[in-house]
């Protein structure tokens, strides 16, 4: 990997990190519970995209499996939280 791509990967990782920081602001500031869930949902999507970028940085396939796992667990987590907000119970 030469200079250009290495810098681009670093820059995009940096931008993703800033975006995660902003999403964290929304998690802490709220104001309502659904705002926090929405921001958490966004955090997992960003984390997954970061895994894909890291895969390019280290030229390794293994990060893809990590991204897939984050996608699945993030989905289940957000789904359970949203369900909880809707009825107050996760399993009915």
């Amino acid at each position: 990997m030469s200079g250009l791509l290495a810098y681009a990967v670093l820059a995009s990782l940096f931008i993703f990190a800033i975006a995660m920081g902003l999403a964290l602001i929304r998690v802490f500031r709220g104001p309502s519970a659904q705002d926090r869930v929405l921001a958490l949902d966004y955090l997992y999507i960003l984390g997954m995209l970061m895994m894909l970028v890291l895969g390019i940085r280290y030229a390794s396939d293994t990060y893809f499996e990590g991204a897939l796992l984050i996608a699945l667990f993030g989905f289940v987590g957000s789904f359970a939280l949203a369900k909880f907000l809707l009825r107050g119970e996760v399993i009915e």
């Binding site: 990782l13 975006a19 995660m20 999403a23 995209l49």
Partner: peptide
């Protein structure tokens, strides 16, 4: 890569 991350950043700014 830069395009994708910039769109993600705009999404976070909007959030």
């Amino acid at each position: 890569l830069l395009l994708g991350s910039l769109f993600a950043l705009i999404g976070a700014i909007g959030l």
